[in-house]
Structures are given as structure tokens and as C-alpha cells.
Design a protein around this nucleic acid. Structure first.
Lengths: 214, 214
DNA sequence: CACTCTATCTATCATTTGATAGGCTAGCGC
DNA sequence: GCGCTAGCCTATCAAATGATAGATAGAGTG
């Protein structure tokens, strides 16, 4: 049972290197030998820390999608208007992925998510989308957002989040993400009156802590 | 040289089934046996029609990214304002992917694009992004678009296109893409005055043929 | 010192996977 | 009818890959 007490350093390094390689080459494109080599241990040593290759991915998803859904759920059920909540979610997501010790840039695009053993995480990803869509719909009904296909709007939000994180780079100034600018960009397309964006921003700032501490 | 004369039906079916499987499981997650089984031929028969597995992907990319870049380039160098051009590009892209005989939903997310032999296509993908960014920048400079990080805005456009196509479904009414609604959604976030969207739409309609016939 | 547990190694295995070799058959030109 | 080719098959291979077995070294404990 490797799941016990104090985590040794190697286990952590495996997760870090694995996440990096998985983001680049995907699940099937990343071999256990690749991961082991990146960590600097022999390939069989991986199986001392994780029961199998899939367990590494499972743990990465655990760190990624679980807090995301928890945070968004917390935001949705709490006080505030839909626009401020959506703004807070986008800022929170950019921050969460940037602060993660793991490279979760391609978290959604993992083909691994088709694996039966990852069905639970696939459901969580869908739940995140459902909650985002719920936020958009309630904003439409309250007259804050323009009407239209909520699914399409949600794909814009989700697609933007995934894509921006995927191609973000700390080496190039232009590709460093300003979470608030990203959120404002998306909100502009949904708000009936884009002039109100500044008030949305103000209200969202108060909601931000709700996304981080579920 | 399979590249010659009249294409037999099998070759076409290989491309269709391969694109479908590749969209779901990615390059490394799709085996030549999977493809052959889907087509209904033996695995070695694939290599009568294609020199190797990568050649199938190469041909799919050829059908996908080459016309996309050609169309966008044609649009960029031609007449019209940036907003109308961007609108036309989004409508054109949704249409192009919907009309393709192949399932190119995940065209960008292929981990295969890291393969050295696909470097040319990787460059084309980058060129498509560069052209999109150019369109956004010129819209900003001409005072049509709000100022801000053009890279971030481009990621929103590209992310939306990829994501919406990826999860589109002809079985669910809500998930059927209305190209013009998608384009309007994105344009709203960029236009300084969203009220002008209708005029943008009108001007874009004239540009549309330019995207399709390069 | 003897025992135990952790973390690693080398050697190896069974499968999977991309690809090749070579044979069979139906259709076409002459 | 003969020869040729396209298109497909079965059998098979070499390499890659996930995983196991078993040995070893070192630290902690009594």
C-alpha cells in the first residue's frame, strides 16, 4: 500500500515528470520508461510507488479535476450573480492550473479519459461543464447575459481555458496569462452591456476565495 | 506508389475510419489493427494502401490544415475589415470541418504533431494561429477591436473552434453548431461596439466564398 | 548483531504493435 | 488461354512496452 504516511520525494517527482510528459505526448504516447528516465530511476522502480501506469494518471486527475469541480460547485451554490461567478471561476481556474506543482495543461485532452477505470473522472469533467453551462443559463434568464445556445457559449469558455493553459509559456511575455484579462475577455461576449464589466470584476473579487477553499 | 489514379473505395474507408478512431483515442492510442478491423480488412492490408501508419495521419492532415491555412491566407490578403474577416473565418472553419468526409474534430490535439515527420503540418498549424492573431491585431489597430493581449484573444478563438467541433453532436439538437452564432459569440468579445455586429455579419457574408475557394 | 522495512536495481516475461514476406484470386488486355 | 496486376489474405518477425521476480544496499530498531 504505497498510499500510506509521509510521501517520499521520488513519488512526487514521478507525478511531476509524468504530468509533463503526459501533457506533451498523451497517455499512450508516454511510456513508463520515459517517465522513469525523466525521474532518474529504473523503469521497474515506478511500480514500487504506483501499482500501474494508470494509477499515476488517476492521481494526477485527482489533484486536478476534483478541486476544480469542488470550487465551481461552491461558487455556484453560494451568493452572487452569474456574471461575477463565471468571472471568478475563470480567474480561479487560471490560478489553480498555474499554481499546481503538476503540469496539467492538457488535462482535458487526455485520451486516457476513455479508459473504463477513469470513468469517474470523466463524469467529473462533464459535471464541470454542466455547472459552467448552468451559470451561463442563469445569467441569460436573469437578463445579464445575451440569449443564445448555452452549450456553444460554454464550449467557448471551456475551450479557452484549456487552450490558453495548453499554450501558455512563462518564457514569452505575451504568452503569460493574466487571469483577469482572460475572464474579462470571455465575459464581454456574454454580457448584454459590456460597460458593466468593471462592476462584475468588483463583485467577482469578493467571490474569488470561495473558488479556492472548498 | 498508391498516390496514383482512381482511388479505390478501401483507401477512402481507411481514412474515414482512421480519422474517427484517431479523434477518440489519439495517434498512439489507435493501432493499425483497430483501423483495419473498423474497415473490415486484415491489418497488413493497410500497408498496401499506405506505406506506414504515419502516412495515414499525414494524408488526413493534408486534407485538414492545408485548406484551412490557404483559406485564411486568402481571406487575410483580400479586401475587407478585420472583424468581417474573422467572422468569415470562424463560419468557414465550422463549415469546413462539418463538411469534411473525415472526422477531424481533434485535429489540433493530436500528440502525433510532435513527430518529426509531421513538422511541416505543425508549422501550418502555427501559421494558422499567426494569421488569426494578425487579424486580431489589425482589428485592434484600426479601432474596431478592444485592445488587449492578442495572443490571449487568439487562444479564445482557436480554443473555441477546436472545442466546439470536438464535442459537437448531430444527435443532440443543442450540440449542433450554428456557425454564424458561434462567430457572433466570439466577435462580441472583441468588438468595441457590439451593436455593430449585424453590419459585420453582412460584410462577412460577401467574404465567405473567399475562405472556401483558395 | 540480527531483523525488518524501504527503495532501488538487474534480468526477464508475455503482449502488443508496426511492418514484411509470400501466396491466392479475380479481372483485364491481347 | 496466358500473363500481369490490384487487392487481399495468412504467417511471421523484431521492437517496444507494461509488469513481475528476485537480489541488494542502507537505515532504523531491539
Amino acid at each position: 500500500m504505497p498510499e500510506a504516511q509521509a510521501l517520499p520525494d521520488t513519488r512526487e517527482r514521478i507525478l511531476i515528470e509524468a504530468s509533463r510528459l503526459l501533457s506533451i505526448n498523451g497517455y499512450h504516447g508516454t511510456t513508463t520508461r520515459d517517465i522513469a528516465a525523466a525521474v532518474g530511476i529504473s523503469q521497474p522502480s515506478l511500480f514500487f510507488h504506483f501499482t500501474n501506469k494508470l494509477a499515476i494518471v488517476q492521481e494526477l486527475y485527482e489533484h486536478d479535476i476534483v478541486p476544480a469541480v469542488a470550487g465551481l460547485e461552491n461558487l455556484v451554490v453560494g451568493p452572487g450573480d452569474p456574471a461575477a461567478k463565471l468571472y471568478a471561476m475563470i480567474v480561479g481556474e487560471f490560478g489553480r492550473i498555474a499554481d499546481s506543482p503538476y503540469d496539467m495543461r492538457a488535462h482535458i485532452s487526455f485520451e486516457a479519459l476513455n479508459h473504463p477505470d477513469l470513468a469517474g473522472f470523466r463524469d467529473l469533467v462533464n459535471q464541470f461543464d454542466d455547472l459552467t453551462r448552468l451559470l451561463i443559463r442563469s445569467g441569460q434568464e436573469s437578463g445579464q447575459f445575451v440569449h443564445g445556445n448555452a452549450w456553444l457559449a460554454q464550449q467557448m469558455v471551456s475551450g479557452f481555458l484549456v487552450r490558453a493553459n495548453l499554450f501558455a509559456s512563462s518564457d514569452q511575455v505575451e504568452r503569460q496569462i493574466n487571469p483577469r484579462e482572460g475572464a474579462a475577455l470571455v465575459l464581454r461576449s456574454l454580457l448584454i452591456d459590456p460597460e458593466t464589466i468593471e462592476q462584475v470584476e468588483e463583485r467577482a473579487e469578493e467571490l474569488l476565495p470561495r473558488y479556492r477553499s472548498p
